[in-house]
């Protein structure tokens, strides 16, 4: 009985999934399978929306630039780019009003997360754009590249 239910469960899952993809493919308002970075307002022009380590080196200490760390508070406390504020992507709703309180919408913001493999920095940048911040850039190399290149590190909650 249990075995039969599990087989049926898998069958229903596969049947519904195939149906979902086929329907999505043929309908005019179907969604792209992956929410592509190209579709987000952030990445219409990749070069102007990302920042390299070389550029960031000369910018991170400038007073007009805001750096946001999209990682968890624990990771942030273990080490972060000096001057960065912590705004985890998954806690955006709870923390955004506090973290972004004194940051005007025309201020340049740079987001980063762990490294090339993580998407939280870009996801956070997407949310920031949705909330009216026009000048948002992503440091794609993230914490990994920063640390590996012997850049200054600050520990603690910021």
């Amino acid at each position: 009985m249990l075995k039969r239910s599990i087989i049926e469960f898998i069958g229903i899952f596969l049947f519904a999934t195939i149906l979902a993809f086929v329907t999505n493919f043929f309908r005019s308002d179907g969604l792209p399978l992956l929410r592509p970075k190209l579709l987000s307002p952030l990445s219409e022009n990749k070069d102007s929306n990302t920042i390299s380590l070389q550029t960031l080196k000369g910018r991170y200490e400038q007073p007009g630039v805001v750096i946001l760390d999209a990682r968890s508070p624990e990771e942030f406390a273990e080490g972060h780019i000096p001057g960065a504020k912590n705004l985890p992507y998954y806690e955006f709703s709870e923390k955004a009003s506090v973290v972004l309180k004194d940051i005007p919408c025309d201020r340049e913001i740079i987001t980063y997360c762990e490294g090339l493999e993580c998407s939280n920095a870009e996801d956070l940048a997407f949310l920031l754009k949705e909330n009216g911040y026009a000048l948002v850039k992503v440091f794609e190399g993230g914490w990994e590249e920063w640390r590996e290149n012997g850049m200054p590190i600050k520990r603690g909650e910021g």
């Binding site: 519904a16 999505n24 969604l31 929410r35």
Partner: peptide
């Protein structure tokens, strides 16, 4: 809901309604 990476949201949004409908 902010419980999954943005990149995977569409896959979930495409499949889940059909799982609900079919079941």
């Amino acid at each position: 809901y902010r419980i999954m990476p943005l990149v995977s949201v569409n896959l979930f949004a495409i499949v889940l309604p059909w799982l609900e409908l079919v079941s």
